[in-house]
Each structure stands twice: as C-alpha cells, then as structure tokens.
C-alpha cells in the first residue's frame, strides 16, 4: 500500500517544513522538542500498517450518508455585520489584512 517507507526518525528540518505547511511560527526550541516527541508518537502509531492489508477497504465516516441535499433556497444565514463582528480588523464591510505579498514575492 505505502508509496514510501516512513523514516524512523523525524528530524528538526522536517518539523520546520511541517510547521511551514501548518502556518505555525514555531520557535527553535519547540522544533527540537517536537522532533523528539513526534518520533516517539509516530513509532507508536505506525503499527496500523501491520493489519492494513490491501483487501481491507478504508472507512472515512462511521455511518455514511449519501446525497444529503436540501432545497436550493436561501437558508438561515448571517448578516455581514454578524460575520465581521469577531474579526480582528474590518473595514468597509470586509476583513482587513496586511500585505498579501512580501517584497521577495
């Protein structure tokens, strides 16, 4: 099944990469600490591969429902004011954010 043999050790470089993907600006000490912990956790959870033979189908939902549809009418929706009420910054009925692109982009 697997298209790669997972490594036995998760390195600090890998945690740095994952933190980038997950949009968390981890401190160097957090990265070091997490690398050690994740190696231990991944080692423990890798045992799922022992019984996951190709003949076993995957389950993503405990009680699958199909074709959950509703009539194509406007439902109970929030007003723009309600939507923006929790925003850290808003202006002219929109969420306000800093620059989208940095100088290097």
């Amino acid at each position: 099944m697997s298209d790669a043999t997972p490594p036995a050790v998760i390195t600090a470089a890998e945690v740095t990469h994952l933190a980038g993907l997950a949009r968390i600006a981890l401190r160097p000490d957090e990265i070091e600490h997490l690398a050690g912990e994740l190696t231990q956790i991944v080692d423990a959870v890798a045992r799922v591969r022992r019984v996951a033979t190709p003949d076993v189908p995957a389950t993503s939902h405990p009680l699958p429902l199909v074709n959950v549809l509703r009539d194509d009418v406007v439902g109970a929706v929030l007003t723009p004011e309600q939507v923006l009420a929790g925003a850290p910054a808003a202006q002219d009925g929109r969420f306000r954010v800093p620059a989208i692109l940095g100088e290097e982009q």
């Binding site: 697997s2 959870v45 799922v48 996951a52 189908p57 389950t59 993503s60």
Partner: peptide, 16 residues
Amino acid sequence: GYYDAYYGSAQQVRTL
C-alpha cells in the same frame, strides 16, 4: 509520500 502508510492505513483499521 506518507498518506497511504499512515492516514490510509488508519482508515483501513477503522473498517476492521
């Protein structure tokens, strides 16, 4: 690269 080995296998365990 790791999806099948971990998440995919876990979903199969769910079936079991």
